[in-house]
Nucleic acid binder design. Structure first.
Lengths: 343, 343
DNA sequence: GAAGCTTTTTGTCACGCGTAAAATTGTTAT
DNA sequence: ATAACAATTTTACGCGTGACAAAAAGCTTC
């Protein structure tokens, strides 16, 4: 068969017996051409598996039909899960999703933002680094690209924010622990790199004071995102120095708690709320593995799915609204206490 | 200041007092223009923060300076870590990396491959789903795009393969366990979804037979990528039914082992190699959390970093070689036994 | 200061498709 | 059958850049 290879839309249009603009229209919206025409195009499509050049398409299109997703650290299971859910929602909504990670570094976040901007996406779902973000850079970015902020709020930046209410996280855990035993001390990094740590720090202090109790902080050293290791090392030291002021430890997040539990196990400490237990340990986030720690970890669930779904929905509404909202909405999801064996 | 907005390279060239082709050359390789010219361009660059239109650029470029990275499941910490390392290597080498995940589904893998192809990348690092991949689809993809296969080999497909030697994984664990106690039974999924499970299954049988021992399989039910849960449920059942034929359990991968350890803990079983321990448990991969299980997990390390580095290097060589190698090389890294407390 | 080389300019074509307007064809209702 | 309308084709232009060739300008070296 003397079929010459199909390279351009021109070629393909000729092969399918339809004009090029009609083919173009078909790819823009298959429902916009007559049924008989659509069938001819789709028949040719199977025969030649032609795909339009994405670069040439986007060069002149006003609506790119692509969205960017950016998270602070993709190797963190919580963000990996959020990114996974977001990507699926975008694909289902007919968008092409491009995934970016800041790798925990300010510089890389800014660079990724630049790359993202040059993709000219219809919209962006951005979970910023937070404290170490280049605030001005993000602000400028958000002025050019319709952006929904996720997980970590930055006041006044972006068209909307969707995340969890840190206050509800910490107040629930503090309330529960105080009600069922000794009030908790707070186990955290001295210089945290992940977004919500500082907010939780404040919320812990607030929650304790609202109970008329003195806040007790146990701060561990360490840099970066290797949180289990930091929790483990800090836990070992704290146990050796007997620097836990109570028998109840509330960890800033589950990853620190996982490290602390490992340290406790190594020290032969029994963890849990029964008699004969030396320590109660609780965390925050409902990390995918907190279900499988030994003992299983009592924690406060970060409702990934709700946040992701709502974030995606908000972005789609934003895109339909032309990229701007009249006023900036902030949607906060309450946390959900998950009782397990460790506290 | 009557500065009109800079939109095109033409505008920018005028604003910087240089001709447009020179600006184009600068973006292609800043070192290719004279120093004084470079400085003028860079001065203008700071003033106007112009960035060339990426779509218009790639429309005519033969070499896109972008690479695609694709993994089976981004929410799996092992693949998240591999993806993270690969992305950094690519950025360091001056490429723009685009990340894709198959989300564990054959259909999504094929679709992502189509999207990836239409990006016309210089090269692709592909860790395929394996058993559930659409082999023909991948083969066709690899004929069009220079591809290095990672982690999971598919015979004859792609220009090169870089991964770990499953035989060295399993033989090391079997040897060690057999040498220091009872020979291990093999704890695995009956219908595994992740890439290397079947290979490890075969290697276990081979290793046992080479010792003149009868292979003992403990297969658990379950679908998908929620491996800890599957290991936990399967472990609970096996412990109740007393279906572990020996006191030594070798898990197909660490995630199953993490679930099994949680089940053992809940059953009150002591794990480890000391006297007074009911069971020894070991895994494969050196999962990022295997260090923090209770007890810490004896395992065989998957050398992520070596595989990632070598994979990236191989791809860069491939790209420089014009996209084809004369013969298909397969690089296997040996595993490294990691002794911890659980076995 | 002139030869010899490198860099830059200028000009032109190509890339693959979006988009608009006008002309034509096809479809449906009357 | 004819009008009225919708879908399609034709025609033509534009998008922002890469690639190339030839001419002009700049720099280095002796």
């Amino acid at each position: 068969m003397g079929e010459l290879t199909i390279r351009t839309m021109e070629d393909f249009a000729a092969a399918s017996g339809v004009s090029r603009p009609t083919v173009s229209k078909y790819f823009h919206d298959p429902g916009s051409v007559r049924k008989s025409t659509r069938e001819r195009i789709e028949a040719a499509l199977e025969q030649y598996d032609y795909r339009p050049n994405i670069y040439a398409m986007n060069q002149n299109r006003q609506l790119t039909k692509s969205v960017g997703i950016m998270v602070p650290y993709l190797a963190d299971p919580v963000f990996a899960e959020i990114a996974r859910t977001l990507e699926r929602r975008c694909i289902e909504a007919g968008f092409h999703a491009t995934l970016f990670s800041s790798h925990g570094e300010r510089k890389l976040e800014s660079e990724a933002l630049n790359d993202l901007r040059s993709l000219r996406p219809s919209g962006v779902l951005l979970a910023p680094l937070g404290r170490s973000s280049d605030r001005d850079h993000i602000a400028r970015f958000c002025e050019e690209v319709p952006t929904v902020l996720l997980d970590r709020n930055i006041a006044g930046i972006g068209e909307a924010f969707v995340g969890s209410d840190n206050k509800s996280f910490v107040s629930q855990s503090v309330d529960y622990l105080t009600r069922t035993g000794e009030p908790p001390c707070f186990f955290e990094m001295r210089n945290p790199g992940n977004p919500n740590s500082l907010a939780r720090h404040r919320c812990y202090i607030e929650a304790m004071e609202s109970h008329g109790l003195e806040p007790m902080l146990v701060q561990v050293e360490g840099e970066g995102w290797n949180l289990e290791e930091i929790g483990y090392q800090g836990g070992m030291r704290a146990l050796q120095d007997r620097s836990f002021p109570t028998d109840t430890v509330l960890c800033s997040n589950d990853r620190l708690a996982i490290g602390l539990l490992a340290a406790c196990y190594e020290k032969g400490l029994r963890i849990g709320r029964g008699s004969g237990c030396a320590l109660r340990v609780a965390g925050h986030d409902d990390h995918p593995y907190s279900r499988f720690t030994c003992p299983s970890l009592t924690t406060v669930a970060h409702e990934y799915d709700l946040v992701s779904d709502c974030g995606a929905e908000t972005l789609f509404r934003l895109i339909e609204a032309g990229g701007r909202f009249d006023d900036r909405t902030e949607t906060l999801f309450s946390a959900r206490l998950v009782l397990r064996a460790s506290a």
